[in-house]
Nucleic acid binder design. Structure first.
Length: 455
RNA sequence: GUGGUUGUAGCUCAGUUGGUUAGAGCGUCGGUUUGUGGUUCCGAAAGUCGCGGGUUCGAGCCCCGUCUCCCACCCCA
């Protein structure tokens, strides 16, 4: 028989791995809740009409589509089948797809539930998303995103709070990061003053590659998009911008003096920097004009977080989008949000071995016994421990002690309670510390007292 | 979607110019006077050599296809 496998780009997670992953999810979740965000979930699958056209042409290709149930082929005529046009046939065969991110389903959610939501709506969502991408380093076809967004508020205080959340999450996870900040309005201003406003997407996609391919290649790519040489020349001082954040802003102010939207972007950034300083955000924040990000719906701030000690690409990203719900028929709702890439954070933590030594999930005490009578004797002890929220279990069969001890060892259970006739007669258990090897006869009260530090 | 790369036991890998029943370490399981694990010693199970085809008297090894892994591009968490 063929050995079973899982689809490419997907992974199984063992109990040990899940303990590590839950450490990440719980850390992120705790911080989200600390800032007043509430959790929602949306279905794994959405109607394709909700998903299609929201991520550009590339994105549509990367959507996993779900075959219609039943006789899906009846949806297409003979001529359409003979045509062999896959993209047209896809529409006939499939009307649902797996979600590609959490932002678009969230926009759909806001529109659909607009009358039940009170704004500003602060929500978080931690669920897997799927992309039919070719897997490679730090890239999976199924991965988790942890999104926090505020919709229905234009205040830059939201940007501040998101930055504070980034600051707090990575402080707790002990990952050194740099937060890169940009503003779409500045990018628009740049495109405007060089007279290529309608080419903004091409320009931003190209300059996004700056630290990867260098200035020269970026210029080549921009030129290849049909942008005039003089416009490219005008762009140079901006691409070569250097110095501290405030020095960069001063330079930008003069370069973008003629652009109203550019000035707006600069003042937004100034406000954000001031707020961060006032609130003593520890994370290094860097104004980075080459940060453009792929998704075109950002209209204000753009964030990206990079791990400093690991080469892995961005581990968190986001920004402000003024009219995301517009595509679903609800105008005038502004949102700002960020997404933590849990799987990349997991890779970073794995490489740096930054997990806490003991997991809150592990069993703290295992009862080892010698027979049926002893097994039954253990049960009330377990109930008492569990009532005190101490993770505990009993080895459910009376096999050799070696096997039971090995079991405890493999699960890294720190304490074992040995129960034989002697212990039963004394109404006690033999409590053994697996690390030191020390053991002592203890009563129920003594046991609960000792174990209460291991909740 | 394009290009490159990898595949032998649960895991990490040996395997000679093509030549008998394909090996090791780790892990697993069992035993080492049946009330003591993580460190000893002994033993066992475990592989259609990714899959399919071809060349050959003979293929883990050579050729073709395919899938998979990883890497780069595109794009992106």
């Amino acid at each position: 028989m063929q050995k079973p496998t899982i689809p490419k780009g997907t992974r199984d997670f063992t109990p040990q791995e899940m303990a590590n992953r839950n450490y990440i999810f719980n850390t992120i979740k705790d911080v989200f809740q600390l800032y007043g965000f509430q959790q929602i979930e949306t279905p794994a699958m959405e109607n394709l009409s909700t998903l299609m056209g929201k991520y550009g042409e590339e994105g549509d290709k990367l959507l996993f589509k779900i075959l219609n149930s039943g006789d899906f082929i009846s949806g297409a005529s003979d001529n359409e089948l003979l045509d062999r046009n896959s993209s047209k046939l896809t529409n006939k065969f499939s009307e649902k797809g797996l979600r590609y991110d959490l932002t678009v389903p969230f926009a759909r959610f806001v529109v659909q539930h607009q009358n039940e939501i009170s704004f500003p709506f602060k929500r978080y969502q931690m669920q897997p998303v799927w992309r039919a991408d070719r897997p490679q380093k730090g890239r999976y076809r199924e991965f988790y995103q942890c999104d926090v967004d505020v919709v229905g508020s234009n205040s830059l205080l939201n940007e501040l709070e998101l930055i504070q959340i980034v600051d707090e999450v990575y402080r707790r996870l002990k990952i050194n990061v740099c937060l890169k900040l940009n503003n779409r309005k500045i990018l628009s201003g740049i495109a405007e003053i060089i007279g290529e406003a309608e080419k903004i997407t091409d320009i931003t996609v190209a300059i996004d590659k700056m630290d990867k391919i260098g200035l020269e290649k970026v210029n080549e790519e921009i030129a290849s998009k049909g942008i005039a040489a003089e416009a490219i020349a005008k762009l140079q001082p901006i691409l070569k911008l250097s110095g501290t954040n405030s020095e960069k802003l001063i330079q930008l102010k003069s370069v973008l003096a003629e652009s109203e939207i550019g000035q707006k972007g600069i003042s937004e950034l100034e406000t954000i920097f001031e707020l961060c300083e006032a609130m003593k955000v520890q994370t290094k924040i860097e104004l980075d004009l080459t940060l453009a990000r792929g998704l075109n719906y950002y209209t204000g701030a753009i964030f990206e977080v990079k791990a400093l000690d690991v080469e892995i690409g961005s581990i968190t990203g986001g920004g402000r989008y003024d009219n995301l719900t517009g595509v679903f028929g609800l105008d005038g709702v502004s949102g700002v949000g960020i997404s933590f890439g849990a799987d990349r954070i997991y890779d970073v933590l794995n490489q740096l071995a930054l997990y806490p030594e003991t997991s809150a999930e592990q069993t703290q005490i295992l009862f080892v016994s010698f027979g049926e009578k002893e097994l039954l004797y253990c049960l009330p002890w377990l109930s008492s421990l569990r009532a005190q929220k101490i993770n505990s279990e009993v080895y459910p069969e009376s096999t050799k002690m070696k096997k039971q001890m090995t079991y405890a060892d493999n699960k890294r259970i720190p304490f074992v309670a040995i129960v034989g006739e002697t212990e039963m007669n004394a109404d006690k258990v033999m409590l053994k510390n697996m690390k030191t090897g020390e053991q002592a006869l203890v009563s129920m009260d003594e046991l609960l007292e000792k174990m209460k530090f291991y909740r």
